[in-house]
Amino acid sequence: MKQTKCRIEMKCQKCDKKATMHITDLVGSKPVELHLCAEHAQEYLAQTENGMSPVGGNMASALAAQMAQQMAFSKVSDEFSKSDQETCPVCGLTFFEFRANSRLGCPEDYQTFRKQLTPLLMNIHGECRHTGKRPSCFGEEDARKLTALIGYRREMSEAIETESYEKAGMLRDKIRKLESEAGIE
């Protein structure tokens, strides 16, 4: 297991450049800290990736490794932390939460984090456009309309918390209407 963290002001252990990537790797059972510039981090991660055994390799750890690698390629620490704080307006997930758990919070996240996810999808799938099955009974618009409900419900509970009851009431009516149209109980 590798852990990749960002800190500031340290020299790369392999050259004179600033170390932007700080990697904790397990060698045997001992954790070893490495401080590397982007180039050497890339080289190091590529090396350890190739050494990984694929039988029994699981998707989530492969994804985490790919994310770490991707960050090493393209991010310096400032950009990195800015991107971490980006939040989905619909479900409230931050990009940091996604990086930590490899799980998205709602369908809208694919739009919210599009910039960060596109290179990741290219890494995993080699493509970023669906060419397979299309639902026969509903379209993208129907799905989007329903996904908006996730945001309305969140807004409503926030309104209740801040005692904005008029707003909460309006949202409740809107939610009920949409849900009953969609047959959601």
Binding site: A60, L104, P107, H125, C128, R129, H130
Partner: peptide, 24 residues
């Protein structure tokens, strides 16, 4: 699918919690 609207869009297909499953 006749009785339920799935999370789906034209560009990425069926939307899943983990990007390793998105598309089909």
């Amino acid at each position: 699918e006749k009785n339920l609207v799935y999370a789906w869009n034209q560009e990425l297909g069926y939307l899943t919690a983990c990007p390793t499953n998105v598309g089909t």
